[in-house]
Simulated assay, not measured.
Amino acid sequence: MRAAFATSLNDTDPLAALTIGDAPEPTPRDGWAVVEVRASALNHHDLWSLRGVGLRADQLPMILGCDAAGIGPDGNDVVVYPVVFTEKGDFSILSEHYQGTVAERVTVPASNLVPKPAELSFAEAACLPTAWLTAYRMLTTRGRLEADGAVLVQGAGGGVATAAVLLATALGARVYATSRDAAKRERIAALGATALEPGARLPERVDVVVETVGEATFEHSMKAAKPGGRIVVSGATSGHLPQVNLRRMFALQLEILGSSMGTPEELADLMALMAKTGVRPIIDSVVPFSAARRAFELLRSGDVFGKVVLDHTR
């Protein structure tokens, strides 16, 4: 079967480690199922894998990709939940210890197959299991956002942050979002958020801060949170050791919460929300699988707004 996989590791030129070609057919373990992939979505995790972050040479070749939607063994449309748990209780996502989704077929635990709503296309559904699920869990399970609440999204334009803007708006919240890039602020404003420069004073303090930037924005996140507010962290692209004003934290009873991915049940809830509200992921490009290298080139360029999706039917 055709697949995109890492055949070497190259920190300076990750695309030099990428091979598009034939891979062995997946052999399911007991309790696992094979999915015929119709669409997969790329993440920056794929480029980090090609650089050797989280992937060792003795694991190669490794098929890339965490996100996919396709046809399950019973003929039903499914979305692949990408987290695989071990008997020891730890976990990894597809393409780390188990072969990934950028292939004609992928095998995963049968419990990882989540029914795809008919309202979502395969391309749309393939965008959800990593970035969108992370954003949904940050806002709901961890952030406990209420319909009349207010949210600050730091660093809007990134995958999780952009998803958080759309989802918070769909959940009925007032949304503020920051970006250093004027063009991205304009795009974010078009999605329903009040777009601001980093560090700008907000019209109100917020219930929830979606924090994926880290050191560069964390002080602003602390100042922007209302008494009892939640600062939910799922990334630290600018650094992971911010200064934290503990006096402000205990005086205002702020919560700093870590969040990562989500559960299959939350993925089902996310898709139900999207089917009901009409919210759809922003897709920058849909690339035929026959031009898969071009999709990785687009991702690496950084000149994208939204997800890069591979159409496995072409």
Rank of each mutant, 00 (worst) to 15 (best):
V79H: 09
A123P: 00
A164W: 08
E219V: 12
F296L: 09
A150L: 04
M222Q: 15
P198C: 02
L171V: 13
P115D: 13
T263H: 11
D67P: 06
P61C: 04
T27E: 13
R247N: 14
S290A: 15
A161C: 04
Q99M: 03
H240V: 02
D30T: 14
I282F: 01
A291L: 13
D311H: 07
D58N: 14
R314Y: 04
P129M: 11
D284C: 03
C127T: 15
G214S: 09
A272M: 02
T107V: 10
L273R: 07
G262N: 05
A41Y: 02
V106K: 05
D22K: 11
M271E: 08
Q59F: 04
V160E: 07
N43Q: 11
F289M: 12
K307L: 05
Y98I: 06
M274K: 04
E146W: 12
A23K: 00
V308N: 02
Q243A: 15
Y136S: 11
S260W: 15
F250Y: 15
A17I: 00
T134C: 04
T141L: 14
F218C: 06
V304L: 10
T237N: 01
A156I: 10
F296Q: 04
Y98H: 15
I231G: 06
S259C: 13
I282A: 08
L267Q: 10
F218T: 03
H240R: 08
A173W: 06
V213N: 03
P117I: 05
Q243E: 14
L299G: 06
A268Y: 11
T162I: 09
L166K: 15
A4V: 15
E204M: 08
G262D: 02
P288V: 03
L257F: 08
E255K: 13
I282M: 12
G70I: 07
K307H: 08
E186C: 00
R105G: 02
T237P: 00
A150Y: 08
M138S: 03
R137G: 01
T19M: 10
A216P: 00
S259D: 05
T169L: 10
N245C: 09
R105T: 08
M261Y: 14
D311K: 08
G172M: 03
H97Y: 13
A17E: 01
G149C: 07
V210N: 00
R105P: 03
A163V: 11
A135E: 04
V279C: 06
A17V: 02
R205T: 12
R230L: 03
F122T: 01
I283S: 07
R137S: 14
T194P: 00
S285E: 06
A195R: 01
V83A: 12
L94E: 03
L55R: 01
A123N: 02
G89F: 05
D284R: 04
A275T: 07
D77C: 02
T212Q: 06
T277Y: 10
S238G: 00
M271Y: 09
A251L: 15
T101E: 10
R56T: 09
I71H: 00
